[in-house]
Amino acid sequence: MTFASTAVRTVYQAAFNSLERPLLFVQNLVGMRRVAWMFLLPNLVIFGAFTFLPIILNYFYATTGSDAILLSQRPYVGAENFRTLLACKDYLDPNTCQQDIFWRAIHNTAKFVVLQVGLMIVFSLVTALILNRDIVLRGFFRGVFFYPVLLSPVVVALIWKWVLQRYGLLNAGLEEAGLSSVNWLVDANWSFFWIVFVTIWAHMGFYVLILLAGLQAIPSDVYEAAEMDGASKWRVFYRITLPLLTPTMVVVLVLSLIRAVQAFDEIFVLTGGGPGTATTLILHYIYETGFAARPRLFGLAAAASILMAAVLMVLTLLQLAVTRSRAEG
């Protein structure tokens, strides 16, 4: 350990020494007043190239056609891409739309977001409340629920794919119990159920953690005062815990909404969007249209992502407003 820390120290020192002279030179060149920009520059350059510039470019892609990646080779088509996406006789029936997969993806995403976020909140709240109780091994159980959060989406999907396969653990268990087995990921309804289940399984621990922090921020003397007032357990929950936890709940709601709208990785590996388009969500459509399918319809993908960005923007502004009011309140 000491050897390792000495090694780290040496590398750290060497890195410092090699950078000091040039940076000192820059510092003297720009003067103390502008030295802050010297520290900001690397981050801003990266931001500029990979965040700010792409935001602007996205609009150029959305308004141009063809499968060329270079903007100079792309003809201007105006709002054509948006028109293509939005061309629909009946928005509730994807079959009447020109881009029927896009609308199926939107329908699926809406259904997914409502189900997944709703169930996520219920289960993470229940788990957080239980973990907040005075129970031995609390730290262990907290770890249990948090562990899947760290796993990569691909790993999560493969784990469940293995459990859910035709001759997997779950079917074996069902047959053992005298029930018939199901081909889980081939049936449209079941595979939708499983993408909701698996994404909750994978991300619940994160929200449990935030809710637990919120629960622990409620001062214990409030509970003691309620006890002195003779409040019952349920009353304490409804009149004290829940109202005081509301700000945290809103944070969890908004964060999970933002994530759910962008869900992709686990589902892509678990079901590949199938069977058919039963589990194809909006980001999956963007990926397929822009990168997987030939020809690559960058314009359509960019237009779809701008529509998605609009939704996310609203959700994020909501989050910022909530976080701010929580910080102030």
Binding site: F50, T51, L53, P54, I55, I56, L57, N58, F60, Y61, I69, L70, L71, I258, Q262, F264, L283, I286, Y287, G290, F291, F298, A301, A302, S305, I306, M308, A309, L312, M313
Partner: peptide
């Protein structure tokens, strides 16, 4: 603006 929204231009 999560990077997932700017996939196309970042790729460029």
């Amino acid at each position: 603006i999560p990077p997932t929204i700017n996939l196309v231009p970042i790729f460029l």
